[in-house]
Lab assay of single mutants.
Amino acid sequence: MQRVNMIMAESPGLITICLLGYLLSAECTVFLDHENANKILNRPKRYNSGKLEEFVQGNLERECMEEKCSFEEAREVFENTERTTEFWKQYVDGDQCESNPCLNGGSCKDDINSYECWCPFGFEGKNCELDVTCNIKNGRCEQFCKNSADNKVVCSCTEGYRLAENQKSCEPAVPFPCGRVSVSQTSKLTRAETVFPDVDYVNSTEAETILDNITQSTQSFNDFTRVVGGEDAKPGQFPWQVVLNGKVDAFCGGSIVNEKWIVTAAHCVETGVKITVVAGEHNIEETEHTEQKRNVIRIIPHHNYNAAINKYNHDIALLELDEPLVLNSYVTPICIADKEYTNIFLKFGSGYVSGWGRVFHKGRSALVLQYLRVPLVDRATCLRSTKFTIYNNMFCAGFHEGGRDSCQGDSGGPHVTEVEGTSFLTGIISWGEECAMKGKYGIYTKVSRYVNWIKEKTKLT
């Protein structure tokens, strides 16, 4: 034993070699072989497995989906700052455009905790909710729209109204504003409101030439003092309507412009014939205590009207009353817009006519005020429907199939267009061939041609 100890002390290297040989010859039971080890760690190889990531292109799944990435790591994937920024906006807080917040056709661009709407022409605001041009839906104005110097929408209202708090709607500024039905039992019968379409306001006024200088022999019209197929109006439903009495009662109609003036057809009036105007009328054979009678003290036909040349060209006249009318729910003026808007309103496509005229061709006159909704007829169809001249200051309205029309005794009465609950004068009943005849239409004086003249002559002093 002493000898062994001496050998170990003198030859430590020998001992180490012996131990190493023993270990190498022993069977290893701690580690699995290569094949079995792979069965336990069965993990798919990654895209760049075996390579240094710093030297390969980034992978979106590896960089940002398996674990949260930084902007720089995302930049490695896209290799483009702009594309990385677009991805980053949604990656950080989701897609803010998912709810489609942009209105009126706006395009949404996502941002971090926010979004941006790219608005089409005519709109602005956070969600493109603000109209900035009158060309689109009248700028959301209830009545009139004008573009300011910086191309912003400025709404306005006709006389007797003021802008509401929203700067879009119009509200009454006087007790009985024009064009409004205020009798409670008839307010439910107000005709369907007309909503502004998209309009090209630059070209809204037709490029028409008034044929002022045409000389033409007097034409022989049949029954051209021209509501057939209409309905009984309720008291106060058309408070701007008046009836004219002269040699015979209810020979023509008219509309209240203001307390002192009536507008009617020029062919209705004769110099030297006494005319009485009755406002607030409903049943011409009954006294309903809503009527107001006034005498006409002055007749002003349009300066281009000449019955000797043509009885229905420039067929418009103004009547001055001896005493002002007292405005109330049964006696209310009709609204008159400017030339541009009167023309736009007419193009809405349908209007209402009213009167006490004959209820059928050569038949009896109506006792109760009649009204009828009539569609506008395109000019080409209008011209083809008659052998008589249709001037540019006239328009056609009615039904091709016949059966409904204005008729004798309705002449001078109103053709009105309702705009968001307020009625505007767009025409004056003038003439036609018979009444409600198939293929024939009622012919009306186009008020847009005469609004400046009306307003100039009827100013209240």
Rank of each mutant, 00 (worst) to 15 (best):
Gln408Pro: 08
Ser350Glu: 15
Gly403Val: 11
Ser448Ala: 14
Glu286Ala: 07
Lys109Met: 08
Tyr305Thr: 02
Glu53Met: 08
Leu244Lys: 01
Gly403Gln: 09
Gly13Arg: 05
Arg294Cys: 01
Tyr330Met: 07
Ser99Pro: 07
Gly246Tyr: 01
Gly122Asp: 05
Ser156Phe: 11
Ile390Met: 09
Pro239Val: 00
Ser169Asn: 14
Asn151Phe: 07
Asn304His: 09
Leu319Lys: 00
Phe348Val: 15
Ser49Asp: 15
Asn283Trp: 08
Phe121Cys: 04
Phe55Gly: 08
Asn304Asp: 11
Val202Cys: 05
Val228Gln: 12
Gly236His: 08
Gln2Val: 14
Ile275Asn: 03
Tyr391Trp: 10
Leu60Gly: 13
Glu142Phe: 04
Ser423Arg: 13
Gly106Pro: 02
Thr209Cys: 06
Arg46Ile: 12
Gly280Phe: 02
Asp93Cys: 04
Thr332Asp: 00
Ala266Ser: 03
Glu159Gln: 07
Gln370Pro: 03
Phe87Met: 13
Asp200Val: 11
Asn138Val: 06
Asp223Trp: 08
Cys335Ser: 00
Tyr22Thr: 08
Glu72Ser: 09
Asn38Val: 10
Thr133Phe: 10
Phe224Ala: 11
Asp212Cys: 07
Ile256Ser: 00
Asn310Gly: 07
Tyr312Gly: 04
Leu23Gly: 00
Glu72Gly: 05
Thr386Val: 07
Trp261Arg: 00
Gly403Lys: 11
Arg3Ala: 13
Leu319Ala: 06
Tyr391Met: 14
Glu320Thr: 00
Gln143Lys: 00
Gly351Glu: 02
Pro324Val: 04
Ala192Gly: 12
Gly230Asn: 09
Thr332Met: 07
Asn5Thr: 13
Phe399Cys: 07
Ala26Lys: 00
Lys347Ile: 03
Lys68Cys: 04
Asn5Ile: 13
His400Ser: 11
Asn313Trp: 08
Leu327Tyr: 05
His282Asn: 13
Val368Asp: 05
Leu460Thr: 05
Glu27Cys: 04
Gly122Asn: 10
Gly230Thr: 10
Phe123Asp: 03
Val447His: 00
Phe144Arg: 00
Val183Arg: 09
Gln219Ala: 15
Thr287Asn: 15
Leu130Ile: 12
Thr190Val: 12
Asn104Lys: 04
Asn42Leu: 07
Asp315Tyr: 01
Glu72Thr: 10
Gly179Pro: 01
Val277Phe: 00
Gly427Trp: 00
Ser220Pro: 12
Val228Cys: 10
Val248Glu: 04
Thr190Arg: 06
Asp223Glu: 08
Trp453Asp: 01
Pro120Leu: 10
Trp431Met: 12
Val4Ile: 13
Asn245Met: 04
Cys97Met: 02
Gln237Trp: 09
Thr264Glu: 01
Ser156Val: 06
Arg379Lys: 13
Thr458Tyr: 00
Leu19Ser: 02
Met394Glu: 02
Thr218Arg: 06
Thr458His: 01
Phe71Cys: 04
Gly253Asp: 03
Phe123Glu: 03
Phe71Ser: 12
Pro177Gln: 01
Asp223Cys: 05
Arg384Leu: 06
Ala397Phe: 02
Ala173Pro: 00
Val447Cys: 03
Asn48Gln: 10
Asn306Asp: 11
Ala265His: 01
Phe424Glu: 02
Val278Pro: 00
Glu82Lys: 15
Asn151Lys: 13
Met6Asn: 10
Lys137Pro: 10
Leu244Arg: 00
Val419Gln: 05
Val374Tyr: 03
Leu327Ile: 12
Gln90Arg: 06
Phe87Lys: 14
Ile284Val: 10
Asn147Gln: 13
Ile300Gly: 01
Glu171Tyr: 09
Tyr450Gln: 00
Glu61His: 10
Asn104Ile: 02
Phe224Trp: 11
Pro333Glu: 02
Arg3Trp: 09
Ile15Trp: 07
Pro120Gln: 11
Ile428Gly: 01
Leu41Lys: 06
Val181Ile: 11
Val30Pro: 13
Glu286Arg: 07
Val419Trp: 13
Tyr91Thr: 04
Asp338Gln: 05
Thr417Trp: 01
Thr85Val: 07
Cys134Tyr: 03
Ile262Cys: 03
His415Trp: 03
Leu425Tyr: 02
Lys89Phe: 05
Ile334Glu: 01
Gln219Cys: 05
Lys459Thr: 14
Gly229Gln: 09
Ala366Lys: 12
Gly179Arg: 01
Glu420Trp: 14
Glu231Arg: 10
Gln370Tyr: 04
Lys234Gln: 07
Gly13Met: 09
Ser217Met: 12
Gln2Pro: 14
Arg358Gly: 14
Val451Tyr: 05
Lys440Thr: 14
Ile15Leu: 07
Lys446Trp: 02
Glu165Phe: 08
Arg404Asp: 15
Tyr115Val: 04
Ala164Tyr: 03
Phe123Thr: 08
Leu325Thr: 00
Trp431Ala: 06
Asn452Lys: 10
Ile297Lys: 05
Glu270Lys: 05
Glu401Ile: 10
Thr85Ala: 09
Val374Thr: 06
Lys45Asp: 08
Phe388Ala: 04
Arg298Ser: 08
Thr209Phe: 08
His289Asp: 09
Cys134His: 03
Cys396Asn: 01
Asp378Met: 04
Trp88Ala: 10
Val359Thr: 15
Pro177Cys: 03
Asn310Cys: 05
Cys141Thr: 00
Glu285Cys: 05
Asn393Lys: 03
Tyr371Gln: 08
Asn48Pro: 14
Ala317Trp: 00
Asn104Tyr: 05
Ala337Lys: 00
Tyr441Gly: 02
Cys435Phe: 03
Ile15His: 04
Glu288Pro: 06
Ile336Ala: 01
Lys387Glu: 12
Tyr161Lys: 00
Pro301Asn: 10
Cys69Lys: 04
Ile390Phe: 10
Arg449Asp: 12
Ser187Arg: 09
Phe345Arg: 02
Val183Ile: 10
Leu383Gly: 10
Gly272Thr: 02
Gly409Glu: 07
Leu383Cys: 10
Cys134Trp: 03
Glu401Val: 06
Arg449Phe: 13
His282Leu: 08
Ala37Lys: 04
Tyr47Asn: 15
Cys117Thr: 02
Asn304Thr: 06
Gly254Asp: 00
Tyr352Leu: 10
Ser354Pro: 05
Ser350Ala: 13
Glu456Ala: 09
Cys145Met: 02
Ser148Gln: 14
Lys234Thr: 09
Arg364Asn: 15
Gln143Glu: 00
Lys440Phe: 04
Phe348Met: 11
Ser25Phe: 15
Phe121Asp: 08
Val331Lys: 00
Glu193Arg: 07
Leu189Glu: 14
Gly412Phe: 09
Val153Thr: 15
Asp338Met: 04
Ala265Thr: 03
Ile428Tyr: 05
Ser156Gln: 11
Ala149Tyr: 13
Gly409Lys: 11
Leu211Ile: 13
Glu401Thr: 13
His415Pro: 00
Arg62Glu: 07
Gly402Ser: 13
Gly236Ile: 05
Ile428Lys: 00
Gly125Met: 02
Ile210Asn: 05
Gln370Lys: 07
Arg298Ile: 00
Thr29Pro: 01
Cys108Leu: 02
Gly122Cys: 02
Ser11Tyr: 07
Thr264Phe: 01
Phe395Ile: 01
Asn203Pro: 07
Asn42Lys: 09
Ile344Lys: 13
Asp110Phe: 10
Tyr441Phe: 06
Arg62Trp: 06
Leu211Glu: 07
Val228Ile: 09
